[in-house]
């Protein structure tokens, strides 16, 4: 997995490339926490180039969303493919996250 980080106004966009699983989830966690430490309060995670996500990856997203809310910020998601959408529906995490079809719509939603 690799992460591409960019800024769009006051939104930090993190694009996940590859699988988000137990062996690499800490990279995403640390990156988001570093951005929050630097003052970012709006985080968008874009899964357009992502592969599959396991329960550890889902858990990290839950934990980061909670942390951002504690900081008065927000973490949102974009571009879930059909497999990822199924995973979020199975686990009912689609009710916990604001999820947009495209990056543009997600950015407009903040």
């Amino acid at each position: 997995m690799s992460l591409q980080v960019s800024k769009n106004g006051d939104v930090v966009v993190i694009e996940v490339d590859g699988q988000l699983i137990v062996g690499n989830r800490q990279e995403l966690k640390q990156r988001v926490l570093d951005e929050a430490e630097g003052g970012a309060r709006k985080i968008l995670i874009d899964f357009a180039r992502a592969g599959y996500i396991d329960s550890s990856g889902l858990g990290v997203l839950v934990s980061l969303a909670k942390r951002m809310r504690e900081l008065g910020g927000d973490l949102r998601l974009a571009n879930l493919n059909d497999d990822l959408q199924t995973l979020f529906e199975l686990t009912k995490l689609d009710s916990l996250f604001q999820i947009a079809d495209t990056r543009e719509r997600a950015l407009e939603s903040f």
Binding site: D54, S55, S56, L58, G59, V60, V62, S63, K66, L87, L90, T91, K92, L93, S95, L96
Partner: peptide, 21 residues
């Protein structure tokens, strides 16, 4: 069940659920 309201925000507890699903 990791999908109940009291478990939904837990970081862990979804592995076996996903295998079964």
């Amino acid at each position: 069940d990791p999908t109940t309201p009291e478990n939904l925000e837990r970081e862990d507890g979804r592995g076996l659920f996903l295998m079964r699903s």
